[in-house]
Design a binder for these strands. Structure first.
Lengths: 209, 209
DNA sequence: TAATTGCTGTGAAAAAGGTAACGCTGTGCA
DNA sequence: TGCACAGCGTTACCTTTTTCACAGCAATTA
C-alpha cells in the first residue's frame, strides 16, 4: 500500500464537498471530467486521486455519487469520529467555531480554551470554553488528536508545545508564525497574510496586461 | 526576466514577516540557514527564493536585515499601495477585517460590502460597510484590484462575478466552493475544511505509529 | 603572503506533482 | 452481430519544485 500525498488528501476532501452538493441536487452518477470541472482541475487528476480509494467507477456510467462519497468517508474519516480542540477564542477563533459547527459529523471541535475570565466556563458559539489550565486534562479525557491554534503570534509556540505535550498529533495554525514541532506531529499553517499578499501580487501582474 | 512562482511569492511574504520579527529583536544581519530554520525550510530554498530579488547578500555577513526587507517590499508591494474590498461581513468577514487591520501599510481593506441592513452604512471593525448595490461604483472609485469573499457558498459565485465585472483582478475566496473566473483573474482559495481534514487525516496516521 | 573558513549564487541532479495517452470494457446502434 | 464510442484505470512522460554540490569571495589565521 503506497502512501497518499497531502495534496491528494486535500483534493479528496474537496471532491467530497462537491459530491455532497451534487447529491443534494439529486445527482446519481458523475464523470471524472464533470468533477474536474467543478474542482477546477483535470479529469486525469481526478481519476489519479481516486486511485487511492478502493472504489472503481464504471466506464459507462462514471461514478455512483453515494458510493464515491462513502468511499471517501471510509478513507478520510476515523470510524469512531475525531475530536478537535481550539485554543484562542478571539475574533478568528469564534468565527472558526461557527464555521466548523456541524459541518462534518465525524470531525468536530469539542472543546475551546482561553485565558480570558470572561470567556471561560461557558458556551461560546456552541462550544464549551475551558481555562488553559485544564487543557492537558481535557485533551487526554476526550482523546483529542487535533489542535487548532488561533492565538496571537507570540503565544502560538507555547500553546503548540502544550498541545503536543498533552498528546495531540496534528496542529492547524492560524497564527502568523512558524511553529516548531517534532516529526510525529503534522503541522499545517493557514497564513492569511501570505495568501492575501499572493493575490495582491498576481492581481497587479494581471492588471498590467 | 523570468517569472516568479506563486510558492516563491508566498515564501517571500513569510520571510518578510520573520525578518520583521528579527529586526524588532535588534538583529542586523541574518544567514540563509537562520532564515530557513525560522521558516521551516532549507537554506538552499531561501537562497533560491531570494534570487528573484535584485539584492545580493554578502558571503561573509549574510543578508542585512533592513536591506532585505526593503528589497522584498519593493518586489511585493505596489509603490502607491493597493486597496482591497471584502464582501460578506459575517463572523468570518469581521474576523478577517480585524486580522488585517493595520497589518500591512501598503495593502489594506478599504471597503466592506453586505446586504444586511443592520450592517451597512456604518463602520464595522474599522472598515466602512457599503450595500452590495454600491460595489461596482466603490470598486472603480477606489481603484480596487483585490476582492476577499467571505459569503456563504451559494452566494460566492455571484459575488465573484460582480467583483470581476467591477474590474478586480484577484480574488481570495474563503467560501467552501470552487469559483469560475477568467484567466486574467488570479484566484486563491482558503479552504479551512480541507485544511482541517488534512490535519485530521495525518494526525491519525502519526498517532498510529 | 598563502592557506583556511564559511557563506553566497547558481548550474545540475533529483524528487514531486501533474498531464497525456493507451488498453480495456460495456453500451448503443446500424 | 459487429463496429464505433465514451470513459475508467494505469503507465509513461513531462513540467515544476526542491535539493545537492561547487566555484567564488572576503575575512581570518598562520
Amino acid at each position: 500500500m503506497k502512501k497518499t500525498s497531502a495534496k491528494t488528501i486535500g483534493r479528496l476532501s474537496l471532491y467530497r464537498l462537491l459530491l455532497d452538493n451534487l447529491r443534494r441536487d439529486n445527482g446519481i452518477t458523475v464523470y471524472s471530467h464533470e468533477l474536474a470541472a467543478a474542482a477546477n482541475c483535470s479529469a486525469a487528476q481526478v481519476r489519479r486521486d481516486l486511485m487511492s480509494l478502493d472504489y472503481a467507477g464504471s466506464p459507462v456510467h462514471g461514478y455512483r455519487i453515494t458510493d464515491l462519497i462513502e468511499s471517501i468517508d471510509n478513507f478520510l474519516d476515523h470510524p469512531q469520529g475525531q475530536s478537535v480542540a481550539l485554543v484562542g477564542v478571539g475574533n478568528l477563533g469564534r468565527a472558526i467555531l461557527s464555521y466548523f459547527r456541524g459541518r462534518r459529523p465525524k470531525l468536530s471541535i469539542v472543546a475551546a480554551f482561553d485565558d480570558d475570565e470572561h470567556k471561560i466556563n461557558r458556551v461560546i458559539n456552541g462550544t464549551w470554553c475551558y481555562p488553559m489550565a485544564d487543557l492537558r486534562k481535557i485533551v487526554k479525557e476526550k482523546n483529542i488528536l487535533v489542535g487548532v491554534i488561533t492565538v496571537p503570534p507570540n503565544a502560538a509556540q507555547t500553546v503548540a508545545d502544550q498541545l503536543i505535550e498533552a498528546g495531540v498529533h496534528g496542529l492547524l495554525n492560524f497564527a502568523p508564525a512558524r511553529l516548531k514541532a517534532p516529526p510525529q506531529v503534522y503541522l499545517e499553517d493557514v497564513d492569511m497574510t501570505m495568501s492575501l499578499e499572493k493575490v495582491a501580487y498576481f492581481s497587479r501582474l494581471r492588471a498590467e496586461e
